[in-house]
Write a protein that binds this DNA or RNA. Structure first.
Lengths: 343, 343
DNA sequence: GTGGATATCCAAAGCGCTTTGAGAGGAAAT
DNA sequence: ATTTCCTCTCAAAGCGCTTTGGATATCCAC
C-alpha cells in the first residue's frame, strides 16, 4: 500500500537522492523535476517514514514535556487547553511528545535525563517563577527550549512567549479608575508564579498613577479554581468597606466571584464591577455569564500553538521566528463593568 | 560519550548480534555471556537508540492519544490525572506519545490517519458512551487498543480496564440504606457517559432490592465541576422533602455539594450523609474535607499506569495481561455518613 | 575549441539497530 | 570413529531515509 522513497524514485525514474532533495527543498533540483516529484507524492500518497528520518538525521522530531505532578498544575483546566494548542500544531508537522511526569524536586534530574536520552529536540516550559532555576539549567544542558511566560530576575536572553500581563491588568485597572472606582480588589493566581506577580504590578502601577495605592487586604492569591474565587470574593464583601470592583486572574476565578456577588444580593455592573482575564477556555465563555464579563483576552490555546510552531520551526530549521514575543491582551468591555456606585 | 551497539560489542569482544540478543532476552545466549553484557551496559551507560530500533523493528514504540477538544473533557481535572498515570509508566519504558486533538465529529478520520501513519503501535480510549462507535472502528482498523471504562451494548470482546461502577455505587447505596436513609440523591457525571449510567444503575439496584425506587427528581447529571455539585445540591435542598443522603460521582462534585450543605446550615454526617467517588486526585483528598468524606475509592492515576503497562506489554510482547479487568472500588467509611436523621 | 563555471542528477555510504542464515565447537548417540 | 544434535556465536543483510562526493551535460567566455 504505502510506497517508500525507493519505490517513488523508481516510479519517477529518478534517484532517491533527487527525490529526497526535491522534497526537502534543496536548490539543486530542477523546478520542473520538483513539480513532477510533488505530483507523484500526491498520487501515491507517499509519506516519509519518520523512524528512518530520525535515524538518518539524528533528529527526534519530538518535543519534551515535563509535567509537574501533584502540584495542582498539570491537572488544572488551563493546562489541558494549552496542551491542546501545542498538540494541534504539532500534529500538523508530525511531531511527537515525550511526556515526563515529575515531582517538583525531581525536575532537574528529569530534564537531564530527557536531554541525554536524545529522544527530544526541544522542550517546553511553563509556570514560570521568579528566578526560575530551570532556565539556567536548560541553557547549561544546551537543549533548545521555549518558555511560556517569563521569569522575573535572572537571565533575560532566552526564548519566550508571554502575554503582557502587567499591561493587561494595568489597562483593566485604568478602565475601572476612569469609571470612578477607588476600592479595587484583585483575585489573583498563586503568588509564586511570575504572571501573578506581573498582574499585581499592573494593578499597582495604574493605581499609583492615579494617586492611589493598592490595598494589600484586597489582594488574594490562590490556585485558579472557582472555589477560591468564591471564597475570596466572599471575604472581600464581608469587609466594612467592600471593594466596588474586582479583577480576577481567570474566568474560572470569576465564576466563583460572581457567585459570591450574586449571593450577596449585589448587582454586577452597577453595585460592583468585575473584570477577568480570559484565557479563552471553550467551556467558560465570558459572554455567557449571566452578566457578560468584561475581560482582558488572550487565547491560551493560540499560545500553545504558537509555541509549538516556534519550537518546530527551530528544529527543522525552517521559518525564522522572533526569540521573544510579548502578546498584548485585548481589553473587551462587556456589561460587568460600570461606573462606581454613588457617582 | 554515549556508546552504541557496535562499540559495546567491540568492547566485549562479541558480535553485535550476540549483544543484541543478550539484551533482548533471546534464549540462545549463554547465561554467563549475558551477565557480561549486562555488566558492560551498566558500566558504559549504553542506551539503545530508539530511532534505530524503530526502523529495524517497524515498531513505533509510541502510543496514540486522541484528545477530544472543545468537549469539556480533556480540560477536566480528571484527564490530567489519568494522563499522569499513563505517562508515568510510559516513561519507564521509553514510550512516546502522539497527541491528536480532534473535534468530536472528526474523530474517526483522526483515528484513521493515526493508524495509517504508522506512528503509533496502539491507542488508548476513554470517556466511553453506550454503543460507542469507536470500538468497532478501531477493531476494523485493526490497531491494538485498550479502553478505559466500558461501553454499554455493542461488542463485548475488546480489551478494557474499568472500575466496577455499578458495584461501587451499589455498595455505597446499600450502606446508606442500612443507616436508615430512604431519600437518597445522586449527583452524577454526564448522562451520556457509560460510567454515569452504571453508577446510576448501581444505586437503582440497591434501592430496588430494599423495596424502594430511585426518585428521578433526585438525580442530576452534569460535567464534573464543583460548581455543578453546588447547584445540584442546592436544588435538592430546596425541595419540600430534601434527601437525607447524597451520592456524588466525584470529589469535585462533592466539594460543591458540601458547600451547599454548609450554606444551608445542615450538618454533614448527621443531618445529611454524603458519599463521593474518589478518583484519588492529589489536590482533593476526601480526608481533608471539613468533615472527612466517606468514599468509594479507585485511583485514576493507577488506572492510567495500568493501561500503559498493558498497552506496552502488548507491543513489546512481554508480559501476559488479561484482556479485561474490572477493578473493584473500595468503600471507605469516614465521618460524612451517619444514621438517617430521626431514626 | 578549450577551460571553467553552473546546473542537474546519481551511486553509495551511513545512521544504529534487529534478524536471517550459517558456522564452529562440543556433547551425545550410534 | 562417524553422525547427529545442541549450544553459542557471528557476518551480513536489511529497515527507509539523508548526505557526501562525484559524474554528466550544458553553457559561457576567451
Amino acid at each position: 500500500m504505502a510506497v517508500n522513497l525507493k519505490q517513488l524514485a523508481e516510479i519517477l525514474g529518478l534517484s532517491q537522492t533527487t527525490v529526497s532533495r526535491a522534497l526537502n527543498g534543496y536548490p539543486e533540483v530542477n523546478a520542473e523535476t520538483r513539480q513532477r516529484v510533488l505530483q507523484a507524492v500526491r498520487e501515491t500518497g507517499y509519506r516519509p517514514n519518520r523512524a528512518a528520518q530520525r535515524l538518518a538525521t539524528g533528529k527526534a522530531y519530538s518535543i519534551g514535556l515535563v509535567m509537574p505532578i501533584a502540584a495542582g498544575i498539570d491537572s488544572d483546566i488551563h493546562f489541558g487547553e494549552f496542551l491542546a494548542g501545542l498538540a494541534e500544531e504539532s500534529v500538523k508537522h508530525d511531531f511527537h511528545f515525550v511526556l515526563n511526569p515529575s515531582a517538583p524536586d525531581d525536575e532537574e534530574a528529569t530534564f537531564r535525563r530527557l536531554a541525554a536520552s536524545g529522544n527530544v529536540d526541544a522542550v517546553f516550559l511553563a509556570y514560570m517563577r521568579p528566578n526560575d532555576p530551570r532556565i539556567p539549567m536548560l541553557k547549561a544542558l544546551s537543549i533548545p527550549f521555549v518558555v511560556h511566560g517569563r521569569s522575573i530576575g535572572g537571565p533575560r536572553d532566552y526564548p519566550f512567549l508571554d502575554v503582557d500581563n502587567t499591561q493587561a491588568f494595568y489597562d483593566a485597572t485604568k478602565l475601572l479608575l476612569q469609571l470612578g472606582h477607588h476600592r479595587i480588589a484583585l483575585i489573583n493566581g498563586p503568588d509564586y508564579l511570575a504572571f501573578s506577580i506581573r498582574r499585581k504590578k499592573g494593578v499597582t502601577r495604574a493605581l499609583t498613577e492615579w494617586g492611589l495605592g493598592l490595598d494589600e487586604e484586597l489582594v488574594h492569591h490562590s490556585v485558579m479554581a472557582d472555589e477560591y474565587g468564591y471564597r475570596s470574593m466572599q471575604h472581600f464583601l464581608e469587609r466594612p468597606d467592600p471593594p466596588t470592583a474586582v479583577l480576577c486572574s481567570s474566568t474560572v476565578l470569576a465564576l466563583g466571584a460572581v457567585r459570591a456577588i450574586n449571593r450577596a444580593g449585589l448587582a454586577i455592573g452597577s453595585d460592583i464591577s468585575v473584570i477577568a482575564h480570559d484565557d479563552v477556555l471553550p467551556m467558560l465563555k465570558p459572554e455567557n455569564f449571566s452578566v457578560p464579563l468584561t475581560t482582558t483576552r488572550s487565547s491560551l490555546r493560540a499560545a500553545g500553538a504558537r509555541i509549538a510552531t516556534r519550537l518546530i520551526g527551530g528544529i527543522i530549521g525552517r521559518g525564522d521566528y522572533p526569540e521573544q514575543e510579548l502578546w498584548r491582551a485585548e481589553l473587551i468591555v462587556r456589561a460587568s463593568t460600570g461606573p462606581a456606585p454613588g457617582r
